[in-house]
Design a protein around this nucleic acid. Sequence first.
DNA 1: CGCGTTTGACCGGCGC
DNA 2: GCGCCGGTCAAACGCG
Length: 295
Amino acid sequence: MSNESKGSPFHYDPFYDDHRAIDDGPAFSFDNSSMYTQTLVQGFDPYPSHMSCTDSLYGSVDYAGEINPTTPQSWLSSSSAEAAPDQGDEDDCGRCKTVQQPPRECKDGDDKSKKENKPRTKGEKKQKEPRFAFMTKSEIDHLEDGYRWRKYGQKAVKNSPYPRSYYRCTTQKCTVKKRVERSYEDPSTVITTYEGQHNHHCPSTLRGSAAAAAGMFSQPLFPSASSVPVGSSFTKELLGQMLPSTTTGTGPSSSRHSYQGLPLQRPPPPPPPQLFPDYGLLQDMLPPFIHKQEP
DNA sequence: CGCGTTTGACCGGCGC
DNA sequence: GCGCCGGTCAAACGCG
């Protein structure tokens, strides 16, 4: 129903959020014909004030792959779940809300607290955690990002032959989750959506490898980077951090990925890089809210 | 043995 | 109110 209501029954869009958040235009899209591979980043923006900036960048692209000539290379998108509940609320799946469970202690996997003890107060809407999604051209579904993840579920995606996998950060008390799915439009494209904020350091920071891998981008991944208010530095960092790491041992992945980052999400506010300790690969790539500093 | 994955079932929200 | 469907759980299983 959700999909149909959005238009084409085959129009599967992992970034439904954006659709809603951005009324004046599709959040992003990828051009298969493009010589570039792109990593589309998208997420909720905690900084509504910047909206106007990126708004103008929203390329009129169709998720189905149709790119509006107006801004063929603007995949920049941002949305603010918090700011616009009625817009960015339903995220991922058009109808599926990002039901962010109440901050429950993530007991490193054994989340016994499930249906029994989740007395969600009536009317009390589950808080959505900041989400951050990006598309990556890769043969590998689960991209290395420096953190350790445990898969806790897999579901078939409507209108898509590819299943969606659900991962949870295995670090204690870290409630960060991520969904990984393949674009039905382009099987070679992996859509990863991060949800939550890491409250710990990256188990292993492979900045070195990431940086090296960054060399892959011989050409501007952000063709329109110049027009991206995010700041070129961000995009660069993003790309670098996006690169897969061999942290968990699934090494070869890095050489098979082709990342093209496009901060669909509003770029983090002019963040003095030095403000962020080395959290790992995601440090720069993910917006500040992803890294929740332990008090 | 510990950790991670698989997979079927269940829950809850939302659209109709 | 009902049904659909995304998200999550948890037991079983596999692997190192």
